[in-house]
Design a binder for these strands. Structure first.
Lengths: 186, 186
DNA sequence: GATTGTTATGTAAATACTGACATATTACGA
DNA sequence: TCGTAATATGTCAGTATTTACATAACAATC
């Protein structure tokens, strides 16, 4: 199975969801570390159902169109569980901003510094959002990772990665911007 | 133009290279933040040449097959320069290990801890390699980012991102592993 | 009554990327 | 001399992903 399939299963292992729900989860919170458009999700759900990893039931709604709510099967849960402890496939790192940094010597230092400052701001904003979620988690689940529920710990761990990433990335942006500014005047 | 084109131009703006050279650079050092297989590179070079961003000459070699050495044109350099200060397209973050962390509550804590410890080791190894390059750069180019050559600063900046990333990532892996171990016994 | 927005589900076309196939030169070692 | 490895350049099929197209129910507002 492809990673997208496991991404879908990872959400369905926590709660039953429609394709539309999944689409929204792929924006937030899962979108922070895995993303997919609805044009990927609907065919993937069909494939997962064909393979026996999920099933669906139609739910009639008032004030909204009907929806198909998907649930994970025992088989799907087993496949997901087995996948979790397998080493991840060697990913191809791709970061456009680092590529730009690598060629920044061609640019006007002032214009480049503005870019990296703006990007720094963006990552600081994202960091702030993550930290708010972190505060909520710690308030509701406790501050000790060892004492919170296992499922909560998993969510907390994923969030922690996001916090580390954004904090470090923002710092790097600021550092690059400062180095560029030094070149602007003297 | 697509990002791959700028990745190729970013290498050719520093020195003339053959398709095969580019392929190797896409493994190391560019591969640390952008990667492509040779099956992408050769068609991309043809496209770039058609658009007037690069030109090539055939170089005969002794003991090796002939090669096509590509060089960037003034037009290519201008296009690259303009691209550098434009904000990057909103990337879709994809990290399989974080996705696994999100579903780690389904797994046996022991097996999962082993995975995260192994991944931590990998990132620590990569960090060590980066730090060796960093030491070489600082020895040869000076320790002050403001005083080294602009092109050197650009290389140094890209490396710095790699160092920050690996250090933070390795730390996170260790933290997750520790949290999982706590669950193993008590 | 018409337009806009949200929920809801899909398909199709285009682009991007990977992995396999394909070929040729030369060096080196068994 | 035969196989293996490195250098060197390409194509092609399949997979993955994005963008655009397409439809429909219902709510709220103008």
């Amino acid at each position: 199975m492809r990673t997208l399939g496991y991404a879908v299963l990872s959400l369905l292992s926590r709660e039953d969801l429609s394709g539309y729900d999944l689409k929204r989860m792929m924006e937030r919170p899962l979108g922070y570390f895995w993303s997919a458009k609805h044009s990927q999700i609907y065919p993937e759900l069909a494939r997962l159902e064909e393979d026996g990893y999920v099933t669906h039931r139609v739910v009639e709604q008032r004030g909204k169109p009907d929806k198909k709510v998907f649930g994970i099967t025992a088989e799907g849960r087993e496949a997901l569980k087995a996948w979790v402890t397998e080493p991840p496939a060697g990913r191809a790192a791709r970061d456009e901003l680092v590529l730009k940094a690598y060629s920044v010597w061609l640019a006007e230092p002032g214009a480049a510094a503005a870019l990296f400052e703006e990007q720094g701001r963006r990552h600081e904003e994202q960091l702030k959002q993550y930290e708010e979620i972190e505060a909520w988690m710690e308030k509701n689940w406790g501050e000790s990772p060892g004492r919170m529920g296992f499922e909560d710990f998993a969510s907390y761990a994923a969030l922690r990665r996001g916090i580390g990433f954004e904090r470090d990335y923002a710092g790097w942006c600021r550092w690059v911007a400062a180095g560029l500014k030094e070149r602007q005047s003297g």
